[in-house]
Amino acid sequence: MSTHRPIMPIWTCGGCGAPWPCRTRRHELQAEYQDAPISLALYMGSCLVAATQDMGWAPAGLLHRRFLGWLL
C-alpha cells in the first residue's frame, strides 16, 4: 500500500506533500495499471471530478493536466 495517497480536500500527497498525484504515485499507478490503461484513465477521471468539486477555485485546465495530462 502506498503512502502517497491524496489528502483531501486540497489534494496534496500524504507521502511527500506535493500536489497529488505526485511523481511517485504516478509511477506506482502506471505499474499497478500496466495492463489496464483504460481503467487507469477512468480512475484518474473520477479523481478529477472529485478534485474539481473540492477545488472549485482551481482553473479547470490546470486540474485536467494534473490528473489526466500525464497519462500516455
Score class of each variant (00 low, 15 high):
Trp20Thr: 02
Ala58Pro: 03
Trp57Glu: 15
Leu48Pro: 02
Ile7Trp: 09
Arg23Asp: 13
Pro9Ala: 05
Ile10Arg: 14
Arg23Thr: 10
Thr24Lys: 06
Leu48Gln: 05
Ala31Gly: 04
Leu62Asp: 05
Pro9Ile: 12
Asp54Cys: 12
Pro19Gln: 12
Thr52Leu: 03
Ala41Asp: 00
Gly17Ile: 13
Ile7Tyr: 07
Ile38Lys: 02
Ala31Trp: 05
Gly45Trp: 06
Gly56Pro: 11
Gly56Asp: 07
Ala60Met: 06
Leu62Cys: 00
Cys13Tyr: 00
Gly56Thr: 08
Cys13Ala: 01
Ser46Arg: 15
Leu42Trp: 06
Thr24Pro: 01
Gly14Arg: 10
Arg5Ala: 14
Arg23Ala: 05
Arg5Cys: 10
Ala36Ile: 05
Asp54Gly: 07
Leu62Met: 08
Ala31Asp: 09
Arg26Pro: 03
Ala58Glu: 13
Ala36Asn: 11
Glu32His: 05
Asp35Phe: 12
Gly14Ile: 06
Gly14Glu: 07
Gln53His: 14
Arg23Glu: 14
Pro9Phe: 04
Leu42Pro: 03
Cys47Gln: 06
Pro21Ala: 09
Glu32Trp: 08
Ala36Tyr: 08
Leu62Arg: 14
Leu63Trp: 04
Trp57Met: 09
Leu63Cys: 05
Ala41Tyr: 03
Ala36Val: 07
Ala58Trp: 00
Leu29His: 04
Pro37Val: 13
Leu29Thr: 06
Glu32Asn: 03
Met44Asn: 01
Ala60Gln: 10
Pro59Gly: 00
Leu29Asn: 03
Met55Phe: 01
Leu63Val: 06
Ala60Val: 12
Gln53Val: 13
Ile7Asp: 14
Gly45Thr: 13
Cys22Trp: 05
Ile7Arg: 15
Ile7Asn: 14
Arg25Gln: 14
Ala36His: 11
Leu63Arg: 01
Leu40Tyr: 01
Ser39Arg: 11
Leu42Ile: 11
Trp57Ala: 11
Cys16Glu: 12
Ile10Met: 12
Leu29Arg: 07
Met55Asn: 08
Met55Lys: 05
Leu62Ser: 04
Leu63Phe: 01
Cys13Thr: 02
Gln34Tyr: 08
Pro59Asn: 03
Cys22Lys: 09
Tyr43Arg: 07
Cys22His: 08
Tyr43Thr: 01
Ala36Met: 08
Leu40Thr: 05
Thr52Val: 08
Glu32Leu: 12
His27Ile: 09
Ser39Ile: 11
Trp11Thr: 02
Cys16Val: 12
Pro21Lys: 08
Ala41Gln: 02
Glu28Leu: 14
Ile10Pro: 00
Arg23Trp: 00
Tyr33Lys: 06
Gly61Asp: 15
Tyr33Cys: 10
Arg5Leu: 15
Gly45Cys: 10
Ala51Asn: 03
Ile10Lys: 13
Pro9Trp: 13
Gly61Ala: 08
Pro21Ile: 09
Ile7Thr: 14
Gln30Gly: 01
Gln53Thr: 14
Ser39Glu: 15
Trp20Tyr: 11
Pro6Asp: 07
Ala36Pro: 04
Met44Thr: 01
Ala36Arg: 15
Gly14Ala: 15
Gly14Phe: 08
Ile38Tyr: 01
Val49Glu: 02
Pro59Asp: 09
Arg26Leu: 02
Thr24Cys: 02
